[in-house]
Each structure stands twice: as C-alpha cells, then as structure tokens.
C-alpha cells in the first residue's frame, strides 16, 4: 500500500493509504481528526475545507497521496496551544454564526482564507460571493457574513478600508 508523508497541524505523519483514499478520509479515519466533516459527495458543500500549504482546499476533492510533503491545517489546528481561539473562530462565536456546527469547520477555514486573500478589504457582496463553495442550512448566512466582516480587522490588525465596506 502506498505511503504518504505529510504534516498535519504542525505534526509530521507517515501513513499507509490506498491509492483511492481521499485526503478527508486520511484526516478522519487514519488520524482521528473528525473536526473536518463530509457533507456531500460532489465537492459542493465545503464542510471538508482544510488548508493545504495555506490555501483553502476541499479535502474531499484531493487524494491523500497528492498531499505528499504538504502541510495541512485543520480546524483542530487553529486555536493556540493555550486554547486561545483564532479571531475567526472567536467572531463566529461572538456573532452566533453557527447553529448545528456541522458546516462550521469548513466555513471557518474558508473564511480565514477569504480574509487573507483580500488585504484590500471585503465588501458584504464579496464575502457572500466568496462563500459560494460552502453550504449552511441553519443560519441563513446572515451571521456568518457578519462574523467574517468582524474578523477582517482582527486578522489584518487594522480597520477595514472604508471603500470596501
């Protein structure tokens, strides 16, 4: 069986996988990182989004062996060792941007990447468009959009440029 070597949440792993094993299956089944969820089988829902070398990626759309040498961050790896939440996690809590919690890990991982990719700022419309790949059935997105806008200044360390709002 092929082996894949990768780093997950800062920890190196060498794992035996089948050729057809998906990255999300490796994370959930082999490493026990069940925070990354599977909500569909057509790469539509975004519940499985993780960061692969810093880029948000649907871990159901990537084979585990494709992650050879990659550095993966999952929802479990976001908070600091002392338990301090990432600003995006904190803003999701603050703005009630989650209900059942199932889409939340993928939503948070996508949102972090979205904010990082937009240092010039993010309008509400851009946030909504940026969430195209993540489905939530509970919140109606209203509070998710609010949380992401609130996390932007915390992640960039300054207020959002007025034009973007």
């Amino acid at each position: 069986m092929p082996q894949v070597s990768l780093t997950v949440n800062g920890k190196a792993h060498k794992v035996e996988v089948e050729g057809r094993t998906l990255l999300v299956e490796l994370l959930r089944e082999k490493l026990g990182l069940t925070g990354t969820h599977v909500g569909c089988d057509t790469s539509q829902c975004g519940a499985c989004v993780v960061h692969v070398d810093g880029n948000s990626t649907k871990s159901c759309s990537m084979l585990a062996i494709q992650a050879e040498g990659c550095s993966i961050t999952t929802i479990e790896g976001l908070a600091k060792a002392d338990g301090t939440l990432h600003p995006m996690q904190e803003m999701f809590r603050e703005h009630h941007a989650l209900q059942c919690g199932f889409c939340t890990p993928g939503m948070v991982m996508s949102a972090i990447d979205l904010v990082k990719m937009h240092p010039q700022g993010l309008s509400e419309a851009e946030i909504r468009e940026g969430l195209e790949g993540n489905l939530c059935r509970c919140t109606g997105y209203h509070n998710i959009v609010k949380a992401i806008a609130a996390a932007w200044p915390l992640m960039h360390g300054h207020a959002m440029p007025a034009a973007a709002e």
Binding site: T34, G35, V38, E76, L85, Q89, H96, G101
Partner: peptide, 21 residues
Amino acid sequence: VKRKEDGRFLAGRGNYVDDMR
C-alpha cells in the same frame, strides 16, 4: 447570552455520530 455549545463546535471537537469509533 453567547452559546455554551459553540466552544466544541468551533474547535472541531463536536461529537457527531460519524465521529464515533
């Protein structure tokens, strides 16, 4: 009041049926 259950969901520590082993 902010939700008590959010901590585990946000940390990826929810306990859904498919997470059980």
